[in-house]
């Protein structure tokens, strides 16, 4: 079964089969990164544009390495170098890039739906590398890949996602993915950070971290965005850590073989204590390693499926 779509805009529209295809394919690509020559010719001659309108080191670098290990020509455009600062609209930027025949455009943007806007007008495949508070599909895929590597399968696992759910695209993509694959997903955070009607996505909502951690196999901590700190959501980061920070003491409520995940970058002492972040349960760096493999798989699958779509 091929990944029969032009773009990867989110996890929500993917079928379970498509998710499994991406994860299985990533397994094969992970091996490439362990070679002396970390490069295969799979996407030779393909042009990939990393179009980042928000600062990002991890995701941008991960896509860049993924593209390079597949022999694609990949280039980076970040908002500081783009003509956005000169007042160009997103559509005009996209049309100009399109005119140079890229095969894939990877976009990170502060506005939900920005990748959809591009997908509507571009021949190139669009990959959403995070749009506002909407989705961050490759992050959820690499998280699922990491869970699968550690736990064998995802079905039946208890996963707690803790933090600012309201503004988190990582949370949304993970909720879609983990519920699709049959995990029991719990979310926890201050009431001001829980979006309305989130239960309809199939999750259980907790306002106390201890209850959420009880018997968990996986704990995903979300970043509290210091830069987005608005006092109407949270009185202080200190109070946040007191109520929701992940400490070794609290972690005792989870299963003995629990794994701790974080999409990064970490705020030590805000959402997670250093003991936990650097402790034996942490798989945070595995997530980063797996990010490259998952993104190689996504690039490969979108390029393979594309021709068919054009033909039909």
């Amino acid at each position: 079964m091929p990944l029969n779509r032009k773009d990867l805009l989110g996890i929500e529209p993917l079928s379970v089969e498509e998710v499994n295809l991406i994860l299985d394919t990533a397994k094969a690509f992970k091996e490439v990164s362990t070679r002396d020559i970390k490069k295969v010719p799979t996407l030779r001659g393909k042009t990939i544009i990393n179009l980042f309108f928000e600062p990002s080191t991890r995701t941008r670098t991960s896509f860049e390495i993924a593209g390079k290990r597949l022999s694609a020509d990949i280039l980076n455009i970040s908002s500081s170098t783009s003509s956005v600062v000169k007042g160009e609209t997103l559509i005009d930027t996209a049309k100009n890039l399109e005119a140079m025949y890229p095969d894939i455009i990877i976009i990170r943007h502060s506005r939900a739906g920005a990748p959809h806007l591009l997908a509507n007008i571009c021949r190139a495949s669009i990959i959403n590398a995070g749009d506002g508070a909407h989705e961050h599909p490759t992050q959820a895929l690499l998280d699922a890949f990491t869970i699968r590597e550690n736990k064998g399968q995802i079905k039946g696992l208890k996963v707690a996602i803790i933090g600012d759910i309201l503004h988190s695209r990582v949370a949304r993509s993970n909720i879609h993915l983990l519920t699709k694959l049959g995990a029991e997903v719990r979310i926890a955070g201050p009431a001001t950070y829980i979006p309305v009607e989130i239960e309809k996505l199939g999750v259980k909502v907790f306002h106390h971290i201890d209850a959420a951690l009880e018997g968990c196999d996986v704990v995903m901590m979300l970043r509290i965005q210091r830069e987005r700190q608005d006092k109407s959501y949270l009185p202080s980061l200190r109070e946040y850590f007191n109520l929701f920070g992940l400490t070794p003491e609290r972690l005792k409520r989870a299963k003995k073989d629990v794994i701790i995940m974080h999409p990064g970058p970490l705020n030590r002492g805000v959402e997670i204590s250093s003991e936990v972040a650097d402790g034996p349960y942490s798989v945070i760096l595995e997530q980063v390693t797996n990010g490259v493999a998952v993104r190689m798989a996504v690039l490969y699958l979108l390029m393979g499926g594309k021709y068919e779509e054009v033909v039909s």
């Binding site: 929500e12 508070a133 989705e135 949304r172 979006p195 309305v196 996505l201």
Partner: peptide, 15 residues
Amino acid sequence: NEGYYSTLLGLPGIP
């Protein structure tokens, strides 16, 4: 509108 769809789409809602 603030509701299920604003949550799904990650767009800020108007209650």
